[in-house]
Write a protein that binds this DNA or RNA. Sequence first.
DNA 1: GTGAGGATGCACT
DNA 2: GTGCATCCTCACG
Length: 220
Amino acid sequence: MKLNRHFYQKNTLEVAEELLGKNIVREQNNTYMKAVIVETEAYIGKDDTACHASKGLTQRTEVMFGEAGHAYVYFVYGMHYMLNIVTEETNFPAAVLIRAVEPIEGMEAMIKNRCLTGKSLTGKSLTGKSLTGKSLTGKSLTGKNLSNGPAKLCQALNINKSLNGWDLTLGKKLWIEENPSLPEFQIGNSPRIGIGYAEEKDRIAAWRFFIKHNPYVSRK
DNA sequence: GTGAGGATGCACT
DNA sequence: GTGCATCCTCACG
């Protein structure tokens, strides 16, 4: 059962926490990839200086100002995509960043995607990946290295700008499946990662959620 | 095991 | 021109 619009229209912190344990599903050329969400972060409104929307409505951020349940996919560091899910009501810019997932189905396709997307358009290797499922130094791209980070999971699931604005309630290409909620004691929280530019109140806000002891969580 | 540094393109002053 | 909601490799213990 895919999650409906109502699920995403709630308070962003609530959505971020409830997304833990849910399955993200990616359909690509009749191949299905499935993974459990194990780490999320909430970015909430113009007053949150870590949130891209704090600078107002721009071409980049307009999806966040739109209807809940759509994907906000953006590009950073010249090489990485990030997947967010828009929350709350229309015109209130907020989203949940998916930071890490644990693959449960279609892992071969994910490994292939990770190898392929690590290359530039000119075919030159950017990060030392070969097509053998290992990096050039022999480090495995399988196991937790497959999707224990926001850019990694986008590579594995082949999520890119073409999915920016995609409606996750359609149940096609990309959506989230219902799963039983996790017991409270399995959920940890902490400040968000990689937002040193934000104001202190936002840097210290514990708006990152993760499944305790799950090996796919990106950092302690 | 940890930490520095580079790769890289796009949105936005 | 600046600065990223990152990942990978290499050097060092």
